[in-house]
Amino acid sequence: MKRLLEALFGLVALTGLPYLIYLGVYYLRRPSGTPADTWPREPSVSIVLPTYNEAAIVESKLEELVDLDYPMAKVEIVVVDSSDDGTAELVETFFAGRSDPELTLIREDERKGLAVALNEAYAAATNEVVVKTDCDSRLAPDAVRKAAANLADPDVAAVTGRNADVLGDSDVERGYRDIQTMIQVLESHIDSTLIFHGPFSAFERDAIVRIDEDSIADDTELALKIRRNGDRVVFDPDIHYKEAAHSAFGKRREQKDRRAMGLLRLLWRQRDALGSHGAYGRVVLPFNWWFMVVSPWLVAAGIAVATVGSLAMLGPAGAAVPAAALGFTALGSRDALGPLQPFYSLFDTQISLLRASVSLLRARADGDDETHDGTWSTDDELREVLQ
């Protein structure tokens, strides 16, 4: 029993130590505000919008884009579409008779995956700055202008923004995003951030490189490759967007597990970046490896040791430990934990990372590294909050 308690204490201490160090560095550095110091000239911008069966929401998204606080004479909208529900026709009708912004519509004969579509769209973009956004998100009117301010820094070639308001009232996602904001602000002040967000990311066109055709972490992969090529990639908390998200445990799994799998596979494929590229490879990447690769297994091991120890010491009454874990999960997925909700948000993310790790290990054991073809499905329930 003593050994079990020592093992549990060791697991808890080991799991939490990197996060305590992070908090210490955060409060020592006290990073705040936008990385951009000046408002530059207004560069020309290509806004890339991948679409698949977005007929219900594409017009409202296009209305948002043409209403951005940016001169439309300097904007090109690049839509790459593989729909079978008339989305492309709605896009053409929307732009009929408009002189600005310019429309470039790429019709795919068949679905080849998001990464393939983005490679085509990035190659077709003609302007100085390329912004990527999603149909199922909403941007603040000044998002492009603030992105341009960041890219005016000659050392910065890419910038992403913050999910400032979670559509669909998901406190689980909101709690995690708030914690993630702290992490990414510090990463950007140290050197560069890792994770880039699909609802809004902006890149210097000349810095863009091709991404893997089977990528399911396309925005982060592009940012990582840009950093490897010598430019900084930053997170600006003043660039705001909104994204719809579920709170219910079961509904979140597909969305969260897919993202987790994409990030884990990307970290593994780009593992030779560890220790290189300044503080990015020596600090930022190791912390993300710990959070995404190591920590989920330690959390699972801690729960297992606590369960075994309580059953060994208390007999049937020891079942209270796994019951408490289940209760914590049930209440957290219902946004019912009050001040403890942010802890559940982190726990929920660790669950997805663990599940994704298991899926990738199984695929690797079966000799199959291609666990996803890069396509995505629409979520009609989430889209209802955007209509």
Rank of each mutant, 00 (worst) to 15 (best):
183 I>A: 08
281 G>Y: 01
330 A>E: 11
255 Q>A: 07
176 Y>M: 06
371 T>M: 08
53 N>P: 06
241 Y>S: 04
247 S>P: 08
68 L>T: 05
10 G>M: 11
137 S>W: 04
381 E>Q: 10
205 R>C: 04
212 D>K: 07
75 V>E: 02
193 T>S: 15
13 A>D: 08
318 G>M: 09
114 L>T: 01
178 D>E: 15
229 N>R: 08
257 D>W: 09
118 L>K: 01
97 G>A: 06
66 V>S: 07
105 L>Q: 11
41 R>P: 10
282 R>F: 03
284 V>W: 04
351 I>C: 14
384 E>W: 07
324 A>L: 12
274 L>G: 07
238 D>V: 10
262 G>N: 06
104 T>N: 14
314 L>G: 05
106 I>N: 03
46 S>P: 06
114 L>H: 03
162 R>W: 15
257 D>G: 07
162 R>M: 12
181 T>W: 11
165 D>F: 14
84 D>C: 04
335 D>C: 06
181 T>H: 09
324 A>G: 09
85 D>L: 04
165 D>V: 07
246 H>R: 08
123 A>V: 08
294 V>R: 05
133 T>Q: 07
114 L>D: 02
57 I>K: 12
246 H>V: 09
161 G>W: 00
106 I>H: 02
121 A>T: 01
380 D>F: 10
269 R>I: 02
308 V>Q: 01
121 A>N: 04
125 A>G: 12
299 V>P: 02
76 E>K: 12
295 S>N: 12
97 G>P: 01
278 G>M: 07
37 D>K: 14
232 R>C: 00
44 S>H: 07
382 L>S: 05
87 T>G: 05
34 T>D: 13
173 E>Y: 14
148 A>Q: 00
332 G>N: 01
56 A>D: 15
160 T>A: 03
238 D>N: 14
95 F>M: 06
294 V>H: 03
26 Y>W: 13
216 I>A: 00
80 V>F: 04
245 A>T: 07
122 Y>H: 07
131 V>Y: 04
117 A>Q: 15
150 N>G: 05
339 P>K: 11
332 G>V: 00
155 D>V: 06
169 D>R: 15
194 L>Y: 08
108 E>V: 06
98 R>V: 04
171 D>K: 14
148 A>C: 15
345 S>K: 02
187 E>Y: 11
95 F>V: 00
142 D>L: 07
96 A>D: 10
236 D>V: 02
306 A>Q: 01
126 T>Y: 05
353 L>T: 11
346 L>T: 08
200 F>D: 00
112 K>P: 04
223 A>K: 00
118 L>P: 00
142 D>T: 13
53 N>Q: 13
100 D>S: 13
125 A>Q: 02
385 V>H: 14
20 L>H: 05
304 A>H: 08
7 A>S: 13
48 V>G: 03
90 L>V: 05
318 G>S: 09
333 S>L: 10
272 D>W: 11
118 L>I: 03
107 R>D: 09
321 V>N: 03
272 D>S: 15
271 R>V: 09
73 A>W: 05
161 G>F: 03
227 R>K: 11
131 V>Q: 03
281 G>T: 03
370 E>L: 13
330 A>M: 09
375 T>Y: 14
374 G>K: 12
58 V>G: 00
160 T>K: 04
247 S>V: 03
303 I>E: 10
337 L>F: 04
73 A>P: 06
